[in-house]
């Protein structure tokens, strides 16, 4: 039916519009506030946030917190990646030693830690172990597990099954099959994923401190609560700066990895 094919996009549009208006109604969104929003953001930025108070971010306390953020990132990424490897192995359909027991358990862990946002992890862990870098690091480890664990296990599931079958046929244990049949195939991909993970963990590390879990986030919270807008602006800019630096670094690192494999 040609009519139907032509109607399709219009129906989709109509459906979308209906949904959007329903959602706006339901969530009580006052669209009038959108009007002039850009102008308002502009004036808020110029009047309240600008100029950023750069002195706030070069004081030694703040620089110390940047260092803390780096420390949590490295600690959590290394630990999280090391934990993600066995989880990925257990949860990969084609390699798991125990499809009925360990695989569902490992998958549940990965999905479970992913389901909870890293900030929520930070809040929960602060309430458990108290303020400080330990809570933040644990939250970041959870984030890292979910982030890298999922990607690791997906890359394992798409490997060439040939070597796996060959090793299995020779009587190798499933750990050996994973180690020799699968790991060499994913090494490259995993190196890329790891670099990407460092980057993502660092991004999260800059803000977990908002709830007292260590690092730069704490300063963001303090200055937001004090409505010290010029300080907030400086902090946000510094966060953007370090994140962009880390992104440049990880892009460079991935390039190096690609070249060393070529």
């Amino acid at each position: 039916m040609p009519d139907r094919a032509r109607l399709g996009p219009w129906l989709a549009l109509l459906g979308t519009l209906t949904f959007v208006s329903y959602a706006i109604e339901r969530l009580n969104i006052d669209l009038e506030r959108l009007g002039g929003m850009l102008g308002r953001i502009g004036s808020v930025l110029t009047q309240r946030y600008l100029p950023p108070n750069y002195e706030h971010i070069i004081q030694s306390d703040y620089l110390q917190s940047v260092l803390e953020t780096l420390e949590m990132t490295w600690f959590a990424t290394v630990t999280g990646l090391l934990l993600a490897v066995p989880l990925a192995w257990l949860s990969a359909r084609n390699l798991t030693p125990s499809p009925l027991l360990l695989r569902p358990a490992a998958r549940l862990i990965i999905i479970g830690v992913r389901a909870v946002h890293e900030m929520i992890w930070a809040i929960i862990l602060v309430s458990l172990v108290g303020f400080g870098m330990l809570a933040g690091s644990l939250a970041l480890i959870a984030f890292c597990l979910g982030f890298a664990g999922k990607m690791f296990s997906e890359s394992l599931e798409s490997i060439d099954p040939g070597p796996v079958e060959a090793l299995r046929a020779s009587g190798a244990s499933s750990l050996q099959v994973f180690w020799f049949g699968a790991l060499p195939q994913v090494r490259q991909t995993w190196a890329g994923i790891s670099v990407y993970t460092i980057d993502a963990v660092f991004r999260a590390a800059t803000v977990v401190g908002f709830f007292g879990a260590g690092g730069m986030g704490w300063f963001l919270r303090q200055s937001t609560q004090l409505v010290a807008s010029h300080d907030v602006a400086a902090i946000v800019l510094s966060i953007m700066l370090v994140v962009i630096v880390s992104e440049l670094f990880s892009t460079w690192l991935r390039h190096q990895l690609d070249e060393s494999s070529a």
């Binding site: 040939g162 070597p163 079958e165 060959a166 046929a169 020779s170 020799f180 049949g181 060499p184 195939q185 090494r187």
Partner: peptide
């Protein structure tokens, strides 16, 4: 066992 596609670990 010997396989059609050799099934070596290429890397």
């Amino acid at each position: 066992m010997i396989f059609q596609e050799f099934n070596l670990v290429e890397r």
